[in-house]
Computed example of a mutant assay.
Amino acid sequence: MVERRPLLDLLAHAVLILGVVIVAFPVWVAIVASTHPAEAFQTGRIPLWFGDAAVANYSLMLGGGLSNMGAPPLAGMMWNSLAMAMIIALGKIAISITSAFAIVYFRFPFRMFAFWCIFITLMLPVEVRILPTFKVVADLGMLNSYAGLTIPLIASATATFLFRQVFLTIPDELLEAARIDGAGPFRFFRDMLIPLSRTNIAALFVILFIYGWNQYLWPLLITTDEGYYTIVAGIKRMAEAVDANPIWNYVMAAAVLAMLPPVVVVILMQRVFVKGLIETEK
C-alpha cells in the first residue's frame, strides 16, 4: 500500500500545474492575439485577453481575403499539409510493416545486417542529410511537387523497429497453424499480422501524422511555388509577405488553424493511441 503524504501530493500537483502553464501559455497567446485587430500590435505589446475581432480575422483567413494582400492562400497550404501528412504517415506504415515482416519471418543472407543498416539511420535525421537529399531531389526534378515533399521523408527506422518488436511477441504457434491451414506468407501477413497490429498501427499513425504535419525545414527548402506551400512553412512566408503592415493577428489566426488538424486527430484516436502504446499481450 502506498502511503499518502499531503506535502508530496501538493508538490506533485504544483509541478504538474507549472508544466501545463509553461506548455499552454504560448497557445493562449496565439489564440488571444488572433482575436485582436492589427492596430493592437502597433505598440509592440501582445494583449493577454481576448479582443473583439475574432470573427473578422478568422473570416478573412478562411475566406482567402489575405491572398489579395500578397500572402499565400491558407486553404491551399492546409490542403498541402494534410496531403503531406497523410502520405508520409501511410507510406511510413506501409514500408515499415512490410520490411519488419520480411526481417522477422523470412530467412535470407545478411538479414540482421539489413535490419541494423535500417536502424542506424536513426542517427541521420533530415537536417543532417539535407544537402545531398536536396541535390538528389533537384536532379530528379521533384522540386515543387508532392513527391519531393514526401518521398525523402517516407522511410522510418523507428516504425520498422517498433513493428519488428511487435511481430517478435506473436507466438510461433500462430505461424505454424497458418501453415497447416495452407496460408501463404501474404495471407498470413494480411489475415493475421495486420489485425493483430491494428492498435500499434493506429498509434504510429497519430505520431507520424503529426510528424508530417509539423515539417518545417524540408518544405521551406524545396518549395518556391505557392501551390505547394505547407501551412507550417507558409506561416513564416505569410509574416514576411506584407511586412510593411502589422498583420500578427492574421499570422496568429493561421497558427491556431494549423493546430486544429493534429488536435482533432489526437482527440479522435486517443483511446486507440494509448492502447497501441501500452498493449503487450497478443
Rank of each mutant, 00 (worst) to 15 (best):
I207M: 05
P171S: 11
I247K: 00
M77L: 13
L208Y: 09
E3H: 14
L204H: 10
K275E: 14
P37D: 03
V266D: 02
A159L: 02
E176K: 15
N214H: 07
A244W: 00
L60K: 13
V242K: 02
L7D: 13
K275A: 08
R45S: 00
A155M: 08
F186M: 11
V206K: 04
R198Q: 12
L217C: 10
V15R: 10
V166M: 12
N144G: 10
A54R: 07
F161V: 07
A100L: 06
P246S: 06
I207W: 03
L153E: 08
A178R: 15
A83V: 11
M84D: 01
R129E: 03
L82K: 13
D172L: 09
A54P: 00
R187N: 06
D181R: 04
V242L: 01
Q42Y: 00
M192R: 10
D52N: 14
A155N: 08
L268T: 14
A254E: 05
T223I: 12
I103N: 00
F113D: 07
I95H: 05
M192H: 05
L217Y: 14
D139S: 14
S99W: 06
L220V: 15
I17C: 12
V27H: 10
N144A: 12
V29I: 11
A147I: 13
K92L: 00
P195K: 15
L62R: 09
T223E: 09
I170M: 07
G227K: 15
H13A: 14
A38D: 00
G91F: 06
L168I: 01
A12P: 13
G76C: 03
I31Q: 07
